[in-house]
Nucleic acid binder design. Structure first.
Length: 620
RNA sequence: GCCUCGGUAGCUCAGCUGGCUAGAGCAACAGCCUUGUAAGCUGUAGGUCGCGGGUUCGAAUCCCGCCCGGGGCUCCA
């Protein structure tokens, strides 16, 4: 339905002649209505009573603002090229009239099916002229999705702590004394208790360190990445991808958008509680992916494989995955609407194979987080499953907890309610005691059937595999969030905030005592950089003290001051951020130390000019 | 999305019981200084006070709507 809405001083109209056979009865006399909101209305194909009601609701909200209570519904076909049949249109126009009257509006209606002559005087204020489109199709979609969301809310679950000795206790009976973060996670998940009032520290840091920032020109939750942030993000992406390749996953790339009306996809949408970005194309409604599942399932469905190739592992780094989270949920690097997520699926023949594969992947996920220097003390494990699955697979679940080595939060559902039977995630607890999931893995028992994914078993029969869904690191942005929050936490405890050396945008900064030594500083910078180390030098006309201060606020790992003494000596005074002390080292010793500490980690060159004087400032 | 707080120079903020030409620090730019491990000195420039409307003789200041951000609800990688 399309409505052109005009706040008018008056309108005069007069039916001239019938345009269609089914036109209403009407007298050919002029009618004048003053101080009225005129609704030129075109009823479109597919409109129903719900649309009529919604149209009036929207109009009524608007009338309240204008402090007007009088409307004229004026059938006007010319607003649309997809008009409904006249009979249906007349019915809806009448429905609108009735609905409006029932809502206390003084309602007039011009006759339907007539060629009318009219004169209108529209008010001049900015809100006087409005066009609106009310569509039933969109509304249905929204409702469909929100039903999937609501379904999740209704599901009942119970909470436990599963100890490494295999004993399970009610959350209330667990002694949290040595498990503060686990307690925070449990509170966060169960009682939804919130304490924080302040801005999350990582948001301040992401700006100050010139990593990333909000982009007001986009939708909320879509970030801009500055060179240093892009570098950090890219290194994490490379690192995770490398570990996935070593694990034996085949990297693929799939589209970011999919047809809303594809049968398998629309069915899956209903089972996944997330809101989508919707894109209208010429002849299709498309949605932006919220994970790599669609692309990989469609890809693997068309592939041919047998039990001999299982477990089959495919991997994609989704840049981006989109989830149109409610605006109030979006926060800095903790949650976006567009985020980068490594997504790895493994197809397995049976539950026995799943269990083996699951153990391997748990190990991998821990390895990935360890690569970011997030230790086991920094995150907590939560496992979710149905009661039946628990009773049938007790040993398996306990083996996961034993491997993790710390008590684990358990959410137990009375019955199976999702497409998965078990999932776990590592949760990071931040400075506001909020928990966010990082790595995760789950056992999917539905989607192979839904997407017709089959393999050939030993007997030559087609079988549906079980599918594991894993994000080995969780969202890449969120990993950076965890690193920044952790650094802040350490700073509060009197330690130095720092990034892992391999992720540090500048690993070594050279500072000449005066511009006389600029050339030497450059020479040393270059000889360090040759070794796949990110080094730069500060050639700006500032005092040395100031340059050192800035190097510290940039969290640079090693700072070296170059003056006459250094030119004359083979030893360099290396200021080590971790200790704050100056260590006398030969250049080669420093290079060796950095290469040793960043061994097995990806490297990318400095993302900015080596001379600081040549750099723009991205954030004040 | 709802509730709530906020948006003033590139950044952090002051001014906001309506009334002089809207201020400060940092950053930028120009100059001086040529430096030994966390902020050298002087000067210059920089503002549709988030956007639109209203009230008023007069609006950064009061009112309404919208946009963006923080917190809460809710939700997830």
């Amino acid at each position: 339905m399309r409505i052109l809405q005009l706040h008018s001083n008056y309108i005069r109209y007069k039916p001239i002649e019938k345009e269609i056979k089914t036109a209403e009865q009407a007298k050919k006399i002029e009618r004048r209505i003053n101080e009225v909101v005129v609704l030129f209305t075109a009823v479109e194909e597919g409109d129903d009573n719900a649309v009529a009601a919604q149209a009036i609701e929207e109009v009524r909200d608007f009338l309240m603002k204008l402090k007007v209570n009088k409307i004229l519904i004026y059938p006007y076909a010319h607003l649309s090229s997809h008009l409904a049949k006249p009979a249906a249109a007349l019915k809806l126009v009448k429905a609108m009239e009735k609905y409006a009257k029932n809502n206390g509006l003084e309602t007039y209606r011009a006759p339907f099916g007539w060629n009318k002559q009219f004169t209108i005087s529209v008010k001049g204020h900015p809100l006087a002229e409005q066009a609106r489109t009310i569509s039933s199709r969109e509304k249905e979609k929204e409702e469909k999705i929100s039903e999937a969301l609501k379904a999740e809310e209704k599901i009942k679950s119970e909470w436990y702590i599963l100890r490494t000795d295999g004993n399970i206790v009610q959350v209330g009976d667990f002694d949290f004394r040595h498990y503060e973060n686990l307690e925070k996670l449990a509170k966060y998940e169960i009682s939804k208790e919130r304490v924080s009032q302040q801005m999350p520290p990582h948001i301040m840091l992401m700006k100050k360190l010139e990593l990333a920032d909000y982009e007001p020109g986009s939708d909320p939750g879509n970030l801009r990445w500055y060179p240093k942030g892009r570098l950090v993000k890219s290194l994490i992406e490379q690192f995770v991808t490398k570990i996935m390749q070593e694990y034996g996953a085949m990297e693929v790339e799939t589209p970011v958008m999919y047809d809303f009306n594809h049968p398998s996809l629309s069915d899956y949408l209903d089972r996944f509680p997330a809101r989508q970005y919707i894109i209208k194309s010429e002849d299709k409604d498309l949605f932006l992916r919220f994970a790599a599942c669609f692309g990989q399932f469609l890809l693997i469905r068309d592939a041919q494989f047998s039990y001999r190739q299982l477990p089959l592992r495919i991997y994609e780094l989704t840049r981006y995955s989109f989830r149109r989270e409610k605006s109030g949920e979006i926060a800095g690097l903790r949650r976006q609407r567009a985020f980068t997520m490594p997504d790895c699926h493994a197809l397995c023949s049976n539950l026995e194979q799943v269990k083996k594969e699951f153990a391997i992947r748990l190990e991998l996920c821990m390895k990935v987080l360890e690569g970011f220097e997030l230790k086991k003390e920094d995150y907590e494990l939560a496992i979710r499953f149905s009661k039946d699955f628990y009773n049938e697979n007790l040993e398996f679940i306990i083996s996961l907890v034993k491997r993790f080595g710390k008590p684990v939060l358990i959410e137990m559902f009375k019955e199976k309610a999702f497409y998965w039977v078990l999932k776990w995630e590592f949760n990071f607890v931040d400075n506001q005691d909020k928990a966010s999931a990082l790595s995760t893995d789950q056992i999917d028992v539905e989607n192979a059937v839904r997407y017709s994914i089959t393999y050939i078993d030993e007997n030559g029969e087609k079988q549906h595999p079980l599918i594991l869904h894993c994000s080995p690191s969780g969202g890449v942005e969120r990993c950076i969030y965890a690193l920044l929050e952790k650094a802040y936490k350490e700073q509060k405890m009197g330690e130095v905030p720092i990034l892992p050396l391999w992720l540090s945008p500048t690993q070594v900064r050279i500072i000449p005592v005066s511009d006389k030594f600029s050339r030497d500083a450059e020479r040393i910078t270059k000889s360090i950089s040759k070794n796949s180390i990110r080094a730069d030098f500060d050639d700006r006309p500032l005092t040395m003290q100031k340059k050192i201060r800035e190097a510290e606020t940039e969290w640079i790992n090693y700072v070296i001051v170059i003056g006459q003494k250094e030119i004359n000596s083979i030893n360099l005074p290396v200021r080590d951020r971790l200790t704050g002390k100056i260590r006398k080292m030969k250049l080669q010793e420093l290079i060796d130390e950095i290469l040793r500490k960043t061994k097995d980690k990806p490297f990318s060159p400095l993302p900015l000019p080596q001379r600081l004087s040549q750099r723009p400032q991205f954030h004040g």
